[in-house]
């Protein structure tokens, strides 16, 4: 490997940290979801973009919500557990069963996201990437293979259109 390719190879994944976080995700998920071991896991996040106008100051702000996303191929169920970037804790799980949801599809614009409508009034947009470097905002985990598997499950088994 030459000097320049070393200089410009970009940020590298710290696999030790990533593996530790993957184990933490598993521990949290199994704690709140009965039969959690039957689910495969990825990290995902939601984005809540809102506009504000405070007089002479106006713009938009984005809230990021970190999620542990589990899926069970056999029962065609996706479970979403809210968490925080350092994985110190998590909230209650929400279940999206293929038989119960209104619709589910993969959105490409404005962002690549997995959209699930449990009913007419609400929806969740799950964003997921192979790896996100910003540890303050996102869970530090490398998940290329897992994301490919989840995408395949979502598109072939879970999506309604």
């Amino acid at each position: 490997m030459g000097i320049f390719s070393r200089l410009f190879k970009g940020p590298q994944v710290d696999m030790e940290k990533s593996n530790a976080n993957a184990k933490k995700m598993r521990a949290l998920f199994d704690k709140v979801v009965p039969d959690g071991k039957d689910y495969k896991l990825i990290f995902g996040y939601t984005e809540d973009v809102s506009r504000f106008n405070y007089g002479f100051v106006h713009g938009s702000k984005t809230k990021i919500g970190n999620l542990i996303v589990g899926w069970n191929d056999a029962s065609m169920t996706i479970v979403v557990v809210p968490t925080v970037p350092d994985l110190s804790g998590c909230g209650e799980p929400t279940y999206y069963r293929r038989t119960d949801i209104l619709k589910a599809y993969r959105n490409k614009y404005p962002t690549d996201a997995f959209i699930i409508y449990p009913d007419k009034r609400s929806y969740i947009g799950i964003n997921a990437y192979d790896w996100l470097d910003d540890e303050k905002l996102y869970v530090y985990v490398s998940q290329e293979a897992e994301l490919a598997e989840f995408t395949s499950f979502f598109m072939n088994r879970f999506a309604t259109k």
């Binding site: 598993r26 521990a27 949290l28 704690k31 709140v32 809210p82 998590c90 909230g91 209650e92």
Partner: peptide, 20 residues
């Protein structure tokens, strides 16, 4: 308020033993 669960305390011990 939303119910919040913390990471199990024995998680680190389990991790060290190779039992995630």
């Amino acid at each position: 308020g939303q119910v919040w669960h913390t990471l199990p305390k024995d998680w680190e011990d389990g991790d060290k033993k190779g039992e995630p």
